[in-house]
Amino acid sequence: MKPIIRILIIVALFFRRFGRGRPVPHAIVLTLLVAARFLRRFGRGLRSPVAMVSSLISASLFLLAWEVVARAGFTPITLFPPPSRVVLALVELARSGELARDLKASLWRAALGFLLGASAGVLIGLATGRVSWIDHVLSPIIQMFRPIPPVAAIPLIITWLGVTDFSKVFSIAFAVFLVVWINAHLGAREIPRTFIWSARTLRLHGLALLGKVIFPGSLPYVVAGCRNGLAIAFIMVYVSELAGASAGVGYQISVSQLAYRIDRMIAALAVLGLCGAAADLLLTLVLRLLFPWLRFTTFK
């Protein structure tokens, strides 16, 4: 079965479980099963049991030290809450439904912004990397925007597009686009000449050349760009929610600060970090399924 079909089936199953109003544990079990499958297939790079146990021990020691210091009374417990309080705050957020609401809002924005920005970045990057007149026309314009920190552009974007979801998605897509574009552009330029020559003697032209040689030939760079872009999408989703949002993990952090709920702030931060890590893992796994040859090849 083609990997793309396999991914679609997994996604469809996932949403079917949610859609029928089944209890959430079903979805969790399914996720774990899928994760276990992935780990079995791609887990060769995992560290040895000794390394895993020792990292587990050091992490628990860190949490224990944090707990002891926070409860020792050097600082007010509300200002520097121990991890147990953070977990309680997380449970509270989950019980009240705020966590689900915030996650839904944030992840939706991040995903849409990433997809829009990354696809535009890849398409335009391949075009500017391979076609010299497009390069001459577009690259100077894009290069003008590249030194601007995208975070600094958010007030302007809000002024022009309003405090809407659209302005948030747009600012995420803008930031992702810039980093994915430069990678795709370089990747397309750095394709070994031999591949292009081979394609010409095999009479691959136009779309076939793009799909069969130029896109896969620049893929190692594109993948690196997309992983950077995903990290930036999570930065941007937080920043864009600081102003004019009514839901989202970033919104939760700023509201909790106003309410002086430090434990909630830390809980939301942890959720944001976990989401970023999970998204990166998911992206890597999807790319490995779609492009299994990346594992065997280093032509750069």
Binding site: P192, T194, F195, S198, T201, L202, R203, L204, A208, K212, V213, P216, G217, L219, F291, W293, F296, T297, F299
Partner: peptide, 20 residues
Amino acid sequence: NYAAFPWMTVRDNIGAGLRR
């Protein structure tokens, strides 16, 4: 060097020039 496309299986590499 770079004699075959690393992103295609042997089958697809050999079929790459036969599209038309």
